[in-house]
């Protein structure tokens, strides 16, 4: 059905909105921003401005009549909802929350590396590292030189000829074992006189060997003390002096 199909009274002419000249874009922006269109504006625009300003008039009493109910509902909500956090607390929590895993990982890694370095350094300073690592620490930052193995172990290595560092025996002092053994033998020799003589002889030989071993150990300790003193003086004078135990180790194919 078109406009011409009915009488003008039945279907009054309604202009198309797209063809309507008012308002243009600039004027529309002024109207939407609440600016006055001015007294010289066309009547259509003045009417439109009047309608828009009426829609944006200050609040009426009716609109503001529900304030008490709204405040009561607010108080009820505040009482039932978990207490609103203060801004200071909220800021602190936000700061803690922002310390995320992405930031924790590098910090934890750095802390771990530092802890390992401190532990290694402390052990090296106490001379407790394995000989190769202790030697490196000795060269790098002047940690105590690695302790040479006891002469008895060196002899044992020579006897076995494998050139490997000897594994420490259960009895730390090599001289103690024969003495103990001799004592036991002596105690048992009182029962049978024939074997007692042989046992006494064996015990004497063992005691002699123990004395010799102890003497050798004392000499080795003395040599080590000398070597340490020489190394200390060499560090003081800046010279590199091969200590006696280093020479000893090299000659025996042992690592110190």
């Amino acid at each position: 059905m078109r406009g011409s199909d009915g009488s003008p009274a039945e279907m009054p002419f309604v202009p198309s909105t797209d063809d309507w000249p008012w308002p243009d874009e600039a004027t529309a922006e002024r109207l939407l921003s609440g600016e006055d269109v001015g007294p010289d504006a066309p009547l259509d625009l003045q009417e439109l401005a009047l309608v828009l300003s009426a829609a944006a008039r200050p609040a009426t009493q009716r609109e503001l009549s529900g304030e008490e109910e709204a405040v009561a509902a607010f108080m009820l909500a505040v009482a039932t909802v978990p207490r609103a956090k203060t801004w200071a607390r909220r800021g602190a929590e936000t700061r803690v929350r922002t310390f995320t895993l992405a930031r924790k990982v590098p910090v934890l890694a750095a802390g771990g590396v530092l802890a390992v370095a401190v532990a290694l350094g402390g052990t090296a300073a106490a001379g407790g590292l394995p000989a190769p690592l202790q030697s490196v620490a000795h060269t790098v930052f002047g940690a105590p030189a690695p302790t040479p193995p006891p002469p008895s172990q060196i002899r044992h290595a020579q006897q076995t000829g494998n050139g490997q560092r000897p594994v420490p025996s259960a009895g730390r002092s090599p001289s103690a074992a024969p003495a103990k053994h001799a004592k036991t033998k002596t105690a048992s020799s009182s029962k049978t006189p024939k074997t007692a003589k042989t046992a006494t002889k064996t015990a004497k030989a063992s005691a002699k060997a123990g004395k010799q071993a102890a003497k050798a150990e004392v000499q080795a300790v003395k040599a080590e003390l000398k070597a340490t003193a020489a190394a200390t003086s060499a560090r003081a004078t800046g010279k590199v002096v091969a200590t006696s135990h280093h020479r000893n180790c090299r000659g025996k194919h042992l690592r110190c």
């Binding site: 202009p15 909105t17 309507w20 308002p23 529309a28 625009l45 439109l48």
Partner: peptide
Amino acid sequence: HRGLRTLSARLA
């Protein structure tokens, strides 16, 4: 803008 234009046309 279309809304204002429509309003203006209807008012007229």
